[in-house]
Simulated scan of single mutants.
Amino acid sequence: MNDYILFMHDDAVERAIADDGARWGQYLAALRASGQFDGGSAIGAGILAGKGRSDKPAAANVTGYLRVRAESLEAAKRFLHGNPVYEAGGTVEVRELPKT
């Protein structure tokens, strides 16, 4: 089983769907029921920091993340179904978290 992180972007076409608390509640309940959900959160403002460089504001287009487990990237894509941002026409980035 591999670990994946899903990043929700702030580009949903239908904001009412993407921001619907009831839809998020149903979606998160389904993730929990899968037994392959390891948490997530909204993401607030931040900075880009580099040694010897001035801080810059972090990109504001990533608004939250979810961590899930799946056999493959293709299998992880099943967690897109029901995601309010995805269902609202927005972008959900799916990335594998390499084992260390």
Rank of each mutant, 00 (worst) to 15 (best):
G35M: 04
A45H: 09
D55H: 12
H81C: 00
V85S: 03
L48R: 15
Y4Q: 05
R15H: 03
N83M: 01
L73E: 07
V92Y: 02
D55Y: 09
P98C: 10
G89E: 04
R67P: 03
G35V: 04
E87T: 08
Y27L: 05
R69H: 06
V94W: 09
A45I: 06
K99V: 13
Q36C: 10
E14Q: 14
T63Y: 11
R95A: 07
M8T: 12
G21L: 13
G90Y: 04
P57Y: 01
A22Q: 11
F79C: 00
D19G: 06
W24Q: 02
W24A: 08
Q26P: 00
A88M: 03
Y86H: 15
R69V: 09
Y86M: 01
L66K: 03
G90R: 06
A76Y: 06
L31N: 08
A45T: 10
V62Y: 09
V94D: 07
K56Q: 14
I43V: 15
V68E: 01
T100V: 14
R95H: 10
V92S: 10
I17K: 11
V94Y: 06
T100S: 13
L80V: 08
A42R: 12
D3Y: 15
A29C: 02
V94L: 11
K99I: 12
A76S: 05
E96D: 01
G89V: 07
G39Y: 09
M8R: 15
E14A: 11
D19S: 11
A60L: 10
A16F: 06
F37H: 09
A75E: 08
R15V: 11
G35Q: 05
T63E: 07
E71Q: 11
R15I: 10
P57H: 14
R67V: 13
A70M: 00
V62I: 15
G82F: 05
L6K: 09
L66N: 06
A30E: 10
M1Y: 00
A12Y: 03
F79N: 00
V62G: 05
D38I: 04
T91Y: 06
F37W: 13
M1C: 08
P57C: 04
A88R: 05
A18F: 01
R78M: 09
V92W: 01
G25P: 11
D20R: 05
L6N: 03
R69S: 07
D10V: 02
A60C: 07
Y4K: 03
Y27W: 06
V94T: 10
R23F: 08
I5A: 15
Y65D: 07
L48H: 15
G25R: 00
K77P: 02
M1W: 04
A16Q: 13
I17H: 01
F37Y: 15
L28K: 10
T100K: 12
Y4L: 01
E96I: 00
